[in-house]
Nucleic acid binder design. Sequence first.
DNA 1: CGTCTAGCTTGACAGACATCAAAACAGCCG
DNA 2: CGGCTGTTTTGATGTCTGTCAAGCTAGACG
Lengths: 120, 120
Amino acid sequence: MSKQADPDVAACCAPIAARPLGPDQAAVIAPLFKALGDPIRLRLMSMIASVPEICVCDLTPAFDLSGPTISHHLKVLREAGLVDADRRGTWVWYRVRPEALRQLGALLEITAAAGEGRPA
Amino acid sequence: MSKQADPDVAACCAPIAARPLGPDQAAVIAPLFKALGDPIRLRLMSMIASVPEICVCDLTPAFDLSGPTISHHLKVLREAGLVDADRRGTWVWYRVRPEALRQLGALLEITAAAGEGRPA
DNA sequence: CGTCTAGCTTGACAGACATCAAAACAGCCG
DNA sequence: CGGCTGTTTTGATGTCTGTCAAGCTAGACG
């Protein structure tokens, strides 16, 4: 376990609207959004984020999908660095990585510089 | 122009971590994240969000991609409801839809309920 | 009307992705 | 050890996506 890509958090902090993202920063951040860009993964993410931690055995039955498919989606979230998992005895427990969530949230903040002050 | 899907903003407001997203809400929101899940689109989005509005003719030369490809990505952003566009004379101008950005930002906020209070 | 420029649409194609079945792996318990 | 449950990996398959070339539309300008 515990094998998730560390997405070089330092590369991005300021909101998307503060100044244009460079190609490198975009290449680092886009995969995080992509990981959330699937309804199943978004629900998984929100289920995991709603509690301190949660067992795969509680996630799988919430979907009309095979076990391997859920496992695949969890792996995507893991490799994006959005969640963390470890096995405890028979079961595997997932929890969210708050930094990653916070980082994305900060990116979407709308600052004074943004398209807010537009007339129409 | 001005043909973007209106993603039923009412369906979601509270952070992802507040409570699990229902399948319907996830189906509405995931496409927004998906639209941001491509490096090119993320850069386009950030370029558009950095100024009140911007002409396609200023976006295209920033990338090593054909015009049609940029146009395709802009269409994806448009149909996701993240940006808005209209033609003014010869040029087409894009601007961000602040509500959409704000909505996504709110979703990623980490509230007291989240995985924060975990011991290790 | 004719033509030029800016941008979009269509068609085609290679690569990526979601899904499942089958097999493998990790712990428990008899 | 041998079987049992829970989870991940592998392989195969159909669908989706990013890209470009070629063709098309909208407006400006004679």
